[in-house]
């Protein structure tokens, strides 16, 4: 590999880390988003307000600051707990911070989608004697999921690009790798262009994946 005098491979390593962070944050964030979306729709007032407050905070505070707060906050917390200095794993902190942000936005998308599922669906499930848990998992969520997918897809693409933000906590993902390589090769323009192309390819693949997911979720709907 002679691209960027042998540093090209470092960019690819960075890209792999970016993809890993995205997938991990997507999984955690989706679970969080579905849970919080359900809380916003069904739970009693105090719980709903708590989740609304969480969403308002994430919406109102810049992502970078949230990432810093979670990274340094968890360093302080773990250090206090352990009684000695703990170096927080950048990957874990990054995943957690991005999932924390993703979950807040996803919860609104999910809530909106749950509300769009016709009332008759829940009524039919109740009339059949299904428990509210089964009703949510088997009836409401699969239909809400289909409605949530376009918005959810946008959030996922944004998440992939947001992974570049966690370069600030020292994790060598694609952007940080680019900055290292551009320093070493003194070809910042070309290196960052290459990084841009890699992001573009990744988001392109993600878009195709989402299109497939949408088709799958549309089964049964004319």
């Amino acid at each position: 590999m002679t691209v960027f005098s042998g540093y090209g491979i470092q960019l690819l390593h960075g890209a792999v880390v970016s993809v890993e962070v995205t997938i991990a944050a997507l999984i955690v964030g989706t679970v969080l988003g579905i849970f919080l979306g359900a809380v916003k729709t069904y739970a009693s007032r105090p719980f709903r307000y708590a989740v609304e407050a969480y969403t308002a905070i994430v919406r109102g505070v810049p992502d970078l600051i949230i990432i810093y707060l979670i990274y340094f906050g968890s360093t302080i917390a773990l250090t206090k707990l352990a009684g000695e200095y703990v170096d927080v794993n950048g990957f874990m902190a990054g995943v957690f911070a991005l999932a924390f942000i993703f979950g807040a936005y996803a919860s609104d998308v999910i809530r909106g989608a749950i509300r769009q599922v016709p009332r008759g669906q829940t009524e039919a499930a109740m009339a059949l004697g299904l428990s509210s848990k089964v009703c949510f998992i088997k009836i409401v969520m699969p239909q809400a999921w289909r409605l949530a997918l376009p918005g959810f897809g946008n959030l996922s693409i944004i998440l992939l690009k947001q992974t570049s933000l966690i370069s600030v906590i020292g994790l060598e993902e694609l952007l940080r790798a680019s900055s290292v390589v551009s320093g070493a090769t003194r070809q910042p323009f070309y290196v960052y262009s290459a990084a841009a192309v890699i992001y573009l390819i990744l988001t392109g693949v993600a878009t195709l994946g989402l299109r497939y997911a949408r088709k799958r979720a549309d089964r049964g709907f004319a």
Partner: peptide, 11 residues
């Protein structure tokens, strides 16, 4: 129960 609008599960 049978409903006016069927309420079959479309998925």
């Amino acid at each position: 129960m049978v409903f006016q609008s069927f309420n079959l599960f479309p998925h």
